[in-house]
Design a protein around this nucleic acid. Structure first.
Lengths: 173, 173
DNA sequence: GATAATTGTTATGGACCATATCAAATATCG
DNA sequence: CGATATTTGATATGGTCCATAACAATTATC
């Protein structure tokens, strides 16, 4: 089911008509049959996810935010006063792996760690002013350039149905 | 948007009632607000994909097949006489990374490389008898234990609609 | 006050992905 | 034909992400 992020090499010249013929001495490449693969949930899900992330990165190129970083900023904004463990765990990120991520966001002055006075072990996470501004711009980019494509592609009703089904899978599968 | 594969540590004791209270001196953990995150296509898509892969691996534990390996076997079965480059590229796997994967399948006698007589550079891929038998069993496991869950969860009609929407995203996003 | 648990952190290894490069074989073209 | 370019499978290598063990500092527990 694996699908890499490689851009298809596109060695096909769209000008040539008559594709798929076999009798001529041409012996064209002849595309493979996906068969049952296109009905496999995991396969289609993975391919879709890669495409969506790819598009997300393009839309956010000006802000240099990955999907993971965007999710951290969103969650910190919505949940002020939480520490690293809490933010990381609700995102499914392991604490050790969250450290470098925060180092990055902090070095770019998007997010700050503050020693908690209640529990001096933990670091309270907050967005900096720049972080808030960047997040605001990021949200607009995502809404206008990224999520909007879903509506164009599926329509509003289907888009909502899709999100709901995916959430159900994520929570109950 | 990142979501790791970590199993939630489940430090919650389901026996305790009265969750989410705040007035008592207990000061419970209080779950974070996902906010707009739960509406982000990429976030939900990734979480769903991880859950599906996780379930797939559990269902295939007896056969020790990953989603990627299963997809290779499926594609080789459906397209006999193709070489490594063709199989790998249609799966989005880069040729260099496909080598180790085939080494694995071949060492387990599920798949074989055969030097082509037409073009002695290329290796024709075929399933061994054992590979065919394993694939047959794998298909049954996937159908009865894995894909069937989708029907239970969404219903037949919704399941088909989901697959179609995901394919659309994978192909046209 | 001794022991256990938690928080952030480092180190480390594995899985997956991507690029450059190579030898062998084939294709192309003068 | 023969020189050059291309293709195929393969190796080496680096990057990113994910997972576990271990540690010091701090706090909780008894």
């Amino acid at each position: 089911m694996t699908v890499s992020k490689t851009a298809e090499k596109s060695s096909e010249k769209p000008g040539d008509a008559a594709k798929g013929r076999k009798d001529a001495a041409e012996a064209q490449p002849e595309a493979l049959q996906l068969g049952e693969l296109s009905e496999q949930l995991g396969y289609v899900l993975k391919r879709a996810q890669l495409k969506v992330f790819e598009n997300f990165l393009r839309c956010m190129a000006s802000l240099q935010l990955t999907p993971a970083q965007f999710s951290v900023l969103l969650l910190v904004e919505k949940n002020p006063g939480r520490n690293q463990t809490e933010i990381a765990s609700t995102l499914g990120i392991l604490r050790p792996n969250f450290v470098a991520m925060l180092d990055n966001l902090e070095s770019r002055d998007l997010c700050a760690r503050i020693r908690s006075t209640n529990d001096r072990r933990s670091h309270i996470l907050v967005l900096t002013d720049k972080g808030k501004a960047v997040l605001t711009r990021a949200k607009k980019l995502v809404a206008t350039k990224h999520e909007s494509r879903l509506n164009e592609l599926l329509g509003q009703a289907n888009r909502e149905a899709l999100l709901e089904m995916l959430s159900k899978i994520a929570n109950e599968f």
